Simulated assay, not measured.
Amino acid sequence: MPISECNNHRRFPMARTITVAAAQTGSVQDGDLRTITEAAHAMLDEAGRQQVRLLTFGELFLTPFFANKLEEEFDRWFMQDTHEVLAGLREKARRHRIALVLPFAERAHDGYFNSAFIYDEDGREAGRYRKTHIPAYFPSEGPGGTGSFEKFYFAPGAKLETYAVAGTRIGVQICNDRLYPESSRALALAGAELIAMPIAFSTYADPQQRTSIWEIPLRARAYENGVFVLACNRVGTEGPRHHLGRSMVVDPRGMIVAEAGTGKPQLLTAQIDLDAVSAARKKFPWWRDRRPDLYGPLAAPQ
């Protein structure tokens, strides 16, 4: 390389640009693991063709959203981390050199969790996240107003960590977690440049309100922390439950980079420049002006 090129390279480093993807899968019929697994493999193959470096599936995407009803015999929806379906998806991602956020209903030796395991491009486990904010909603009147009973099924996770994959550092927030700004801020302070958000968001019995609020926490978490948000939702009708779709990539300024549709499964991809994180934080220096000395009550037990 000529000296002038070397000098230019040092003076103007290449942008940290990668392609990310949200694998927006469809509804799952009871026990139909084979069909959803085949669809997931097809999306990973397409992601490989598009040279995706980081991909997330949606919350509990391998099963129906079983937490919308009370069912005592729920073991069938849970997998150990050695399950052949999970191993196959990890291997497919490894072959395509895709860093993978893999959500599933986890049966571990110490409990049942709503989890997402994180793997780097070489298929090595970078970490495992377990949903920390477990919701429970009362049913409401009207079509789709099933409520949610996750507290009957899942123990809460105990860690907020970041993971080194795809040339960056990411955090994970699963569905309800995204509504708690404190946890996203903790991930940003720990170095996350992107937060992956596997979600199973439905319209319940109020489609107008639910549709209108979908993007609010996604854009807010991105803007207030200067991070990319990679949000992956489910799509389609599953019994009384209508999943909205609209998986989304949001940049560190809170702007929508890409958005999936509301009607069918879709691999949503977007090329992002990770240097936009530091640029956004210079323009909005929350790290400089925040006042943790005043925030003690946020962390104090109630």
Rank of each mutant, 00 (worst) to 15 (best):
E46S: 13
N68H: 12
A93N: 02
D75G: 06
V52Q: 10
R97M: 01
K69R: 13
L62E: 10
G88I: 05
E91L: 05
D45K: 14
F57K: 06
Y119S: 09
A87K: 12
Y112F: 15
I98Y: 02
F117A: 14
L60F: 11
K69V: 05
G48A: 08
K92S: 09
A40T: 14
E84M: 09
L102D: 01
A108G: 13
F117V: 08
F117N: 13
Y119G: 06
A47K: 06
R95P: 00
D45G: 08
F61G: 04
H41E: 09
A105C: 15
F65I: 11
A87P: 07
L102P: 02
T63Y: 10
Y119F: 15
T82V: 09
E106C: 03
F61L: 11
A93E: 02
Q51H: 15
K92P: 00
A105V: 08
A40K: 11
E121L: 11
S115K: 01
R76E: 11
F57Y: 14
A99I: 01
R94Y: 02
E46Q: 15
H109F: 11
A67N: 03
V101S: 02
L102V: 03
S115P: 02
V52K: 14
F104W: 09
R107Y: 08
L62S: 07
L55Y: 02
I98R: 01
L54T: 08
L102Y: 03
Y119C: 08
H96V: 00
G58S: 15
H109Y: 13
L89T: 06
F66L: 11
F65H: 12
F78D: 08
